[in-house]
C-alpha cells in the first residue's frame, strides 16, 4: 500500500498536522502537569517572577497536619459514596422502565436529560431557593406530609445531603442515556432463551441484564467516581461562594481553590491537587482490578 512506511517527508507532514494541537496542549496541558507536580515541592515561591527559593516536603506535611484538609478528604469521600451508587441505581431503574415502553419514551428521555445541559451555577440558584428554610418549596412539600422544616443550607448536618440530592438530580440523565445504549445492545435472544428455561423477570434481570450490562455499569461507575471526586461548581453556587455551614461541604477541589485563589498558597494548593490525582488513580485502579473479575465483555 501507498504511504505505509514513514519517510522524512511524511513525518514532517504528520507533525505539521499535529502542530496546532501540540502548541496548545504542550503549553496548557503537558507543561502544567509537570509544573504542578514540581510546584507541590516549592516551599518558597514568588509567582510574580516565577522564582523558587526553596524546595521540600513541607507542603505535604502541612496537608497531613491540616484538619481542614482531612475534612475536605472526608467530605469528598462522603459525596462520592452518597452520589455514585444512588445515581446508578436510580438511573438504571429509569432506563429499564424507559426501555420497556414505546409511547412517550422520547419525551421522557428529553425531560430526564434536561438538567445535564443546564448551567450548574444557574440551576444551583434555583435549588438554593427550593432549599430556603422559610419559603422554600421543598420544606413546604415536606410539611404537607408532616416533616418539620429543615434548615437545608445552614445546618451543617443537612448541607451535604442537600448537595448530594441536587447532584444526583443533575447527573441522572447522562447515565440514563448510557444505560439505554447498553440495554439496546443486549440481544433479545438471550431473553427468549431465559424465558424458555422458565426464568422469571427477576431472574432474567440478575442473570441476563446485569451481566450483559456490566461494561456500561463499569464505565458509568468510573466516570461518576472521577467526576464526583472533582466536585466544585455545585458547592460554590449552592452555598453562595462558601464551602457550606462550618465547612460542611468543603471538598478537595474547593480546598485547592481556597488555598490557591484566596490564600495564595500555591505550593499547598498544588500539593492538594497531587493528592487528588493519586486518590483518583488509586480508586480507578481498584475499580479496574475489580472489573477484571466481574465485568463480562
Amino acid at each position: 500500500m501507498l504511504n505505509e512506511k514513514p519517510t522524512v517527508k511524511s513525518t514532517i507532514k504528520g507533525w505539521l498536522y499535529l502542530l496546532p494541537m501540540l502548541v496548545i496542549t504542550i503549553t496548557f496541558n503537558i507543561y502544567p502537569i509537570i509544573k504542578s507536580f514540581l510546584m507541590s515541592f516549592y516551599t518558597k515561591y514568588d509567582f510574580y517572577n516565577d522564582i523558587v527559593s526553596a524546595y521540600g516536603f513541607s507542603n505535604f506535611t502541612y496537608l497531613w497536619n491540616d484538619p481542614d484538609f482531612h475534612l475536605a478528604v472526608r467530605n469528598t469521600l462522603v459525596f462520592v459514596i452518597g452520589v455514585v451508587p444512588l445515581n446508578i441505581i436510580i438511573s438504571l431503574a429509569i432506563a429499564l422502565l424507559l426501555n420497556k415502553i414505546k409511547f412517550l419514551a422520547g419525551a421522557f428521555r428529553t425531560i430526564y436529560f434536561l438538567p445535564f445541559v443546564t448551567s450548574t451555577v444557574a440551576i444551583a440558584q434555583v435549588w438554593n431557593w427550593i432549599y430556603h428554610s422559610d419559603y422554600g418549596l421543598l420544606n413546604y412539600l415536606l410539611g404537607l406530609v408532616g416533616v418539620n422544616p429543615i434548615n437545608w443550607l445552614n445546618d451543617p448536618k443537612w448541607a451535604m445531603p442537600a448537595l448530594i440530592i441536587m447532584s444526583i438530580w443533575k447527573g441522572l440523565g447522562f447515565n440514563i442515556v448510557l444505560f439505554l445504549v447498553g440495554l439496546n445492545n443486549i440481544n433479545t435472544r438471550y431473553y427468549q432463551a431465559a424465558e424458555i428455561d422458565g426464568a422469571n423477570a427477576w431472574r432474567q434481570f440478575t442473570n441476563v441484564t446485569l451481566p450483559l450490562l456490566s461494561p456500561i455499569t463499569f464505565l458509568v461507575t468510573v466516570n461518576g467516581v472521577i467526576g464526583s471526586f472533582k466536585v466544585f461548581d455545585e458547592i460554590f453556587a449552592l452555598f453562595q461562594g462558601s464551602s457550606g455551614p462550618s465547612k460542611s461541604a468543603l471538598t478537595i477541589v474547593y480546598y485547592l481553590y481556597e488555598k490557591f485563589y484566596t490564600e495564595w498558597k500555591y505550593g499547598i494548593a498544588a500539593a492538594s491537587g497531587v493528592v487528588l490525582f493519586f486518590l483518583i488513580l488509586f480508586v480507578t485502579l481498584i475499580q479496574l482490578w475489580y472489573s477484571r473479575k466481574h465485568v463480562h465483555y
Binding site: 504511504n3 505505509e4 512506511k5 514513514p6 511524511s10 513525518t11 514532517i12 507532514k13 504528520g14 507533525w15 498536522y17 499535529l18 501540540l22 496542549t25 496548557f28 496541558n29 503537558i30 507543561y31 502544567p32 502537569i33 509544573k35 504542578s36 510546584m39 472521577i226 471526586f229 472533582k230 466544585f232 477541589v253 485547592l256 490557591f260 500555591y266 494548593a269 498544588a270 491537587g273 497531587v274 487528588l276 490525582f277 483518583i280 488513580l281 480507578t284
Partner: peptide, 27 residues
C-alpha cells in the same frame, strides 16, 4: 498519516487524560 513518533505521541496524550484538569489551574 504514517509518521515517526505517531504512536508514542498518541500514547502520551492518552495518558494525560488521567490527570484531573483542576490540577492544571494553578500553573
Amino acid at each position: 498519516l504514517h509518521f515517526w513518533g505517531r504512536n508514542l505521541v498518541f500514547m502520551i496524550f492518552l495518558g494525560t487524560m488521567m490527570i484531573p484538569g483542576e490540577m492544571l489551574i494553578i500553573p
